[in-house]
C-alpha cells in the first residue's frame, strides 16, 4: 500500500520552475533515495511533502490525507507523523541531548506544556529507549554542542523517532559527516526502515551509498523524474543522464546483469 502518493507536483519560485509534473508513489516501509545534481530540485521535492515549501500545483497524499487541503492546525497534526532529518542537524546547541530529543514530542502537546517543556514519564522513558538504541545512552545529559557530527545526527534521528513517525524525510543526512560516521548513520536509518517499518525518503549526493542502501532510487534532473526503479537497474548511461556532464567523476559499480 502506498503511504505517499505524489501526482503532477509542480513548484515555481517566481519564474523559475524547480519541479515540473513530478509523480511518484512510495510504499509503506520502503527506503527510497532521490539523487540528482545540485539544483535539480531534490530539497524542494522533499519539503513539498510536509509543506515546509508550498507546492504550486499537484497532489500530495500522505497516509490517506490530502496534505494540500489541510488548514494550519491539521497540517501541524499531519506533520507529527513525518520526521525530518537535516544536513546540519538543526539541534539547539545549548540544550542537552535528551531535551533536544524530546522536542520531537512538541507537536503532540498543548501549547502550555510544550512551551515550558513539561513531558510525561512515558515520553521521557521512550526518549531514553530511543537514545539507547542509537548508542547515545551515555551522552544523554551532554549539551549538544559537545557532540561530534555523527552523534549530533543520531540525536536528530532520535528526535524524529520519538515523533512516532510513519515517514522520515532526510535531506542529505550524511553530507557533513566523515565516511565512518556516515556509514553508522546510514546503517541506523536502514535498520529503522527494516525493523520499525518506517518509510524513508532521502536525498543523497553519493550514488554508491544510494545503491547500497535503497530499495528504490529516483533520479531527478531539472525538476523532472528521469529514473525511478530498483538500484540494480541504474546503469552508467542513466547516471550520466541524471548528472549531465559531471557524470565522469561519479564513482559507482554497475551491478552485473
Amino acid at each position: 500500500m502506498a503511504i505517499l502518493t505524489i501526482k503532477s507536483l509542480t513548484k515555481y519560485y517566481k519564474d523559475l520552475r524547480a519541479l515540473s509534473e513530478v509523480s511518484l508513489k512510495v510504499k509503506a516501509g520502503e527506503f527510497v533515495t532521490v539523487i540528482g545534481r545540485s539544483g535539480a530540485g531534490k530539497s524542494t521535492l522533499l519539503r513539498c511533502v510536509n509543506r515546509m515549501i508550498e507546492p504550486s500545483s499537484g497532489l500530495i497524499e500522505f497516509d490517506g490525507i490530502d496534505m494540500r487541503s489541510l488548514g494550519r492546525r491539521d497540517l501541524r497534526k499531519a506533520r507529527t507523523r513525518i520526521g525530518m532529518i537535516f544536513q546540519h542537524f538543526n539541534l539547539v546547541p545549548r540544550q542537552t541531548v535528551i531535551e533536544n530529543v524530546l522536542h520531537g514530542r512538541l507537536g503532540y502537546k498543548s501549547t502550555l506544556q510544550g512551551s515550558f517543556g513539561i513531558y510525561s514519564d512515558e515520553e521521557k522513558s521512550h526518549a531514553v529507549d530511543v537514545l539507547a538504541r542509537l548508542g547515545l545512552a551515555e551522552q544523554m545529559h551532554k549539551r549538544c554542542d559537545q557532540l561530534s557530527g555523527g552523534q549530533k545526527q543520531r540525536v536528530g534521528i532520535a528526535r524524529s523517532l520519538v515523533q512516532d513517525p510513519r515517514l522520515i524525510l532526510c535531506d542529505e543526512p550524511i553530507a557533513s559527516l566523515d565516511p565512518s560516521s556516515a556509514k553508522t548513520i546510514m546503517d541506523h536509518l536502514h535498520r529503522i526502515s527494516r525493523d520499525m517499518k518506517i518509510t524513508i525518503l532521502m536525498n543523497l549526493h553519493q550514488v554508491d551509498v544510494a545503491i547500497k542502501y535503497s530499495d528504490r532510487i529516483i533520479g531527478i534532473r531539472e525538476g523532472g523524474i528521469v529514473f525511478d526503479d530498483e538500484p540494480r537497474r541504474l546503469k552508467k548511461k542513466i547516471v550520466a543522464e541524471i548528472y549531465g556532464s559531471d557524470a565522469d567523476d561519479i564513482l559507482f559499480e554497475e551491478s552485473p546483469e
Binding site: R76, G107, G117, G156
Partner: peptide, 21 residues
C-alpha cells in the same frame, strides 16, 4: 533559523518553538 525549521517540520506550534528553541 535551523531549529525553527526542524521544529516546524515536526508539528510544533509557534509559541512552543519560541519558548523551547
Amino acid at each position: 533559523g535551523d531549529v525553527v525549521e526542524a521544529l516546524k517540520a515536526s508539528g510544533a506550534n509557534w509559541t512552543q518553538i519560541v519558548c523551547q528553541a
